[in-house]
């Protein structure tokens, strides 16, 4: 079970990375097409208007997918930011309960967020909402990527709450910055 879940978070991170790469690809192809047009205009005096219709819109959708698919992975790797100044000075016993509180609050919010996003997808589907502009994309499709990302995040948060409750070290505590960790908050958790 443990390894299945960890796989899930990691795969979801890879999917997010794929969407980031997709933004890059779409934009680069669009720029290349524009450049070819410019060159053709100079060479043969005619441009064809080569382009990816609605590429800005697609980039926006890919961005949302990248952000939300990455949520759980980013959480597990300790890359989400928080203020740990108070937490790090607490005695160990109390500190565990504060970590439980943090994870539980986040899990509840994330669960609520998931339900509300799912309800948005339902509305978009029911009313056949489509994007405006050059390409009519049914909105429920890109919105679903956000729901899936949130489901995985909620799972990760519930998972983490239980782990910490059972006395394990939080997995987000291993994060390190570019400057080495000597006197800082994350390190004393690591060395516990």
């Amino acid at each position: 079970m443990r390894s299945y879940l960890d796989h899930l978070y990691r795969i979801s991170g890879y999917i997010a990375a794929f969407f980031l790469f997709a933004i890059f690809s779409v934009v680069i192809i669009q720029v290349a097409l524009g450049l070819i047009d410019e060159i053709l205009l100079v060479l043969i005096g005619k441009a064809f208007g080569l382009q990816i219709s609605g590429y800005a819109r697609f980039s926006g959708y890919f961005l949302a997918a990248a952000t939300f698919f990455a949520l759980a992975h980013t959480f597990k790797e300790g890359s989400h930011i928080r203020v740990s100044l108070v937490v790090q000075h607490l005695p160990e016993g109390l500190r565990r309960w504060v970590e439980v509180w943090c994870c539980a609050v986040a899990a509840v919010l994330s669960g609520y967020f998931t339900l509300q996003m799912a309800s948005l997808v339902h509305d978009s589907y029911r009313f056949n909402d489509v994007s405006s502009g050059l390409i009519a994309v049914p909105l429920w499709i890109p919105q679903t990527s956000m729901v899936i990302g949130l489901v995985i995040l909620t799972l990760a948060l519930v998972d983490e709450t239980l782990r910490v409750l059972l006395g394990q070290r939080p997995s987000y505590a291993d994060a390190e910055g570019l400057l080495d960790q000597t006197s800082d908050e994350t390190s004393d958790l690591t060395h516990r």
């Binding site: 930011i81 928080r82 203020v83 108070v86 504060v98 970590e99 943090c102 986040a106 919010l109």
Partner: peptide, 16 residues
């Protein structure tokens, strides 16, 4: 924020 809840979640909670 002081209790260590992640920034994004704190903002969401206060908005809520």
């Amino acid at each position: 924020l002081a209790s260590g809840v992640w920034v994004a979640f704190s903002l969401l909670a206060v908005g809520y």
